[in-house]
Amino acid sequence: MKTKILINSFTSCGGCISSIIELEIFPDIFDSVEFVYFPLIKDAIDIEKCDIALIEGYITRKDQIKDMKLIRRNSKKVISVGTCSIFGGISSMVKEIPLKSVNQIIDLDGFIPGCPAPPELLGNSLMAILNGEEIILPENNLCSECGLRPENGLKTKVKIKKLLPDKPPKKCLLLENVLCLGPITRAGCKAKCIESNMPCEGCMGTVSREFTANIINFLASLDVSNDLLTYEGLFFRFSRPDLPT
């Protein structure tokens, strides 16, 4: 019997779901899998009973909460894909709407972070779920994968002056006075941004603690120039802490 899969996206850019289609395993997956609900490739009718539900996006409307609960009731496993669903992501920067991430509404059986989720991690995780195994996420930070990691760590106090490098970096971006969030970000994307001369922005979320707590601890240990600190996107681009109001 084929495994029944449901894929739905809530408020999001749809990037993570699209990257499922771009996976290498995608064409072959049809032999063992049946998509019961996948608005991107076939007409969506009703949320049916399924084995695995993959969901993406942030919850911004009340009817989405209803759908969310319905999906939970009808599926054996619910996996959230992408940063939006678990940490809030870009959509959490909208302050007007009372927002919630998926894991605050229902229990999840696993999550795959990333904005969008890196294809390798997504493919491996999907295969693991289909085989009935647990998703294994890297427990390290990005520096463990980074090619520019300094041999002896950051020996001196790092001064941060800018958000983007002027020229392709030759050594650790932090040592070139560029703010890179690699040290507080979960590994798993193989440092793609840094390979293309961009600092890490922390889309994979953190391994432990909330993102905000981590970034405060991290920035307080550096010497960051004041004009950068006023830039709110630095702190809340992918996550906002839940404080009681």
Binding site: N140, L142, C143, E151, N152, G153, L154, K155, P183
Partner: peptide
Amino acid sequence: PNRCGLCGVCVSECPYNAITLEG
């Protein structure tokens, strides 16, 4: 050691130079 990503932020944070990172 399995969780350590060798970023070395702790090396600069330690006031006593007790942490060293080599390779």
